[in-house]
Design a protein around this nucleic acid. Structure first.
Lengths: 357, 357
DNA sequence: TGCGGGGTCCAAAGCGCTTTGATCGCGAGC
DNA sequence: GCTCGCGATCAAAGCGCTTTGGACCCCGCA
């Protein structure tokens, strides 16, 4: 059932039927009702390719899912982000075009997707501190929103990010307040922009409190459970082991906890853990009281908002590029306590202390 | 840069340029080279919409990601499956069109996607034992592959599944061999086809060994860490608690373990855990020796294969519908041991015993 | 010398839609 | 009574590609 057949069925021209269905004013209300009824009855849906060809729009948004050729890992936050964005797309009548791309042919793929005209806009995932995708996309003229930021980028671009630096700065201060002096940072891949910001927050807090940053306590890799486990196992075996871990994801934190359990180290009595929590649907940080003390920000909500930003950019290309930074909460769970042997001074509250802005 | 411009640039007709680029024989080799060189130089990519309109193919595969309106949960295996399928699509020049759909308007959406002609085929995720999507899709004539099976479906359809029943039957036998008599099953949502098959395998093994199935030990829900934790916490508090847990995912198993830790119950000394392991990239079951004894099957590999099946169906619509069942491994980890107080009889080996076929 | 037949290339139709620029009545205004 | 304006509808062009049905040239064969 296509437009021509529908028009023939109704004894109208394609023009009128098209206009009736797309809400144009120059068609009689009675005719519109007749057309709509027939379209419903005959289960007519416009062919999106033809519509796209005629309008120049595809009603589809591209997501490029980079898959590290070394690690073969897709970031688990991805599913939740997509779920959030997908809700928004559905509401606006957009489809989501997903490409899984090995990082070595990423550049080619971005150029392709623009030239093939198969999407009206793009979401850029997992930006690195220095990321040539930005320049590449800017050249294509395709609207895009970055989930995260690109520190080395000087020209403006649209993004949605959380304040990673501030979140990890607060978390570190919190641990220091509890008397911890040796705090390990189990971070994401070192090239990732978010990982750098988190590290900077951590370093800033240590510096502000006059504590040395021990490079041995800072680790970066793909955020897997195994990585958390191996790192904690190794660090806890040091002569001067950390008394607290700051991890970049709940999954890593679970690995750290497993290592602590294996070593007979009790959490939070002997070891404190603070983690970032993306609020993944299937991996909540406890159902009532949080299991882990965590910096918290819903990646699904981020997906919803990023999609909305992009829809806005497409609808109104003239506007300035939207840039948005969300604040992460710091929630108190049962994974943190005073450093072993530390007596809390009444002056320094162990509750999440507000930072100077 | 479109075909017309490219043809003009070369002083050739669109016909010839199109044929040159698509590998048709009736174009001189020297011309083909000229055309290809110019296409590369001018960064020409055919507009996929136009190509689709002309050929009737879209070069895109649809995945519909159902999101339960009650739980708001997307299945974590999804990302890995997509990553696997995406590799195959990329190799065949296909795109992946993803729709996130709340289960209440699933039916409408399946009808839509067929009528809109925006994909050449579909992958059906998370099938239920009784799933009207199958009949719906069959009516549309669109090729589709089900990841899993639909027990109540009588007519043939293409699917890729693992032998869930046999996997859980083996796992249960294995636990019984270790002397366990009270074995809890922490399963996925009761409506899911895979959950039913796993339960049937579990029940079959109990029955084969003359053990009663205690309904109190069988739980079904979304496979979250919290669910595993809450279930284990409750069951372990029973007057006659289980000595072993059989769980449907690594994440659930981690919840069970957390409950055991919290209750001071040692794994595997006081409690054994066997889980199904989808081999998710970021959540490996240990890097060398498995943490958990597990039935194991890579969902990423399943994605690759399902995609290949679908590509085959599209390329050759005449063929009979492919149906494929993969066997899951049973791997030995450090989460299982003899039931407390049980002396292993030398006759019954605790290693994964081959079942009669 | 004439003719059939590859080997190359081309003009134009068609895919299903939107949109431009008419056309056609019909009542209002002079 | 004629024109003007307007509401409702339509024919046809065009989006960028593929594909059908020639056209043209040149070579070899009778």
């Amino acid at each position: 059932m296509n437009l021509r057949a529908l028009a023939a069925e109704l004894g109208l021209s394609q023009t009128t039927v098209s206009r009736a269905l797309n809400g144009y004013p120059e068609v009689a209300e009675s005719t519109r009702r007749r057309v709509e009824e027939a379209a419903r009855r005959l289960n007519y849906r416009p062919d999106m390719r033809a519509k796209g060809l005629a309008t120049g729009r595809t009603m589809a948004i591209g997501h490029i899912l980079p898959v590290s050729s070394r690690h073969e890992i897709v970031n688990p936050v991805f599913a939740d982000f997509i779920a959030g964005a997908g809700e928004t797309y559905a509401r606006h009548g957009y489809d989501l075009l997903l490409s899984v791309v090995r990082d070595e042919d990423e550049a080619r793929h971005y150029r392709d997707v623009a030239a093939k005209r198969s999407v009206d806009g793009l979401i850029v995932h997992a930006p690195r501190a220095e990321d040539r995708r930005i320049a590449l996309l800017r050249d294509t003229g395709l609207p895009f929103v970055v989930h995260g930021r690109v520190s080395d980028e000087t020209l403006p671009y649209a993004f949605l990010d959380i304040d990673n630096r501030r979140a990890f700065e607060r978390a570190t201060h919190f641990l220091i307040d509890l008397g911890h002096r040796r705090i390990a940072l189990v971070n994401g891949l070192a090239s990732m922009d978010f990982a750098i910001r988190r590290r900077n927050g951590y370093l800033a807090a240590l510096a502000a409190r006059g504590l040395p940053a021990d490079p041995a306590l800072i680790r970066s890799d793909e955020m897997t459970e195994s990585f958390g486990f191996a790192t904690a196992r190794d660090l806890l075996a040091l002569p001067d082991p950390p008394t607290a871990f700051l991890t970049s994801s709940l999954i890593v934190a679970m690995g750290v906890r497993r290592a602590a359990d294996a070593a007979g180290i009790a959490v939070p009595r002997d070891l404190s853990i603070v983690t970032h929590d993306d609020e993944l649907a299937y991996l909540r940080n406890g159902s009532d009281e949080p299991i882990y003390t965590a910096t918290r920000s819903s990646v699904r909500e981020a997906g919803r908002r990023a999609a909305e930003m992009l829809m806005g950019m497409i609808a109104d290309p003239g506007h300035p590029l939207p840039q948005r930074i969300l604040e992460a909460d710091l929630v108190l769970g049962r994974s943190t306590g005073p450093a072993p042997g530390h007596v809390l001074s009444p002056a320094r509250s162990p509750s999440p202390a507000p930072l100077p802005p």
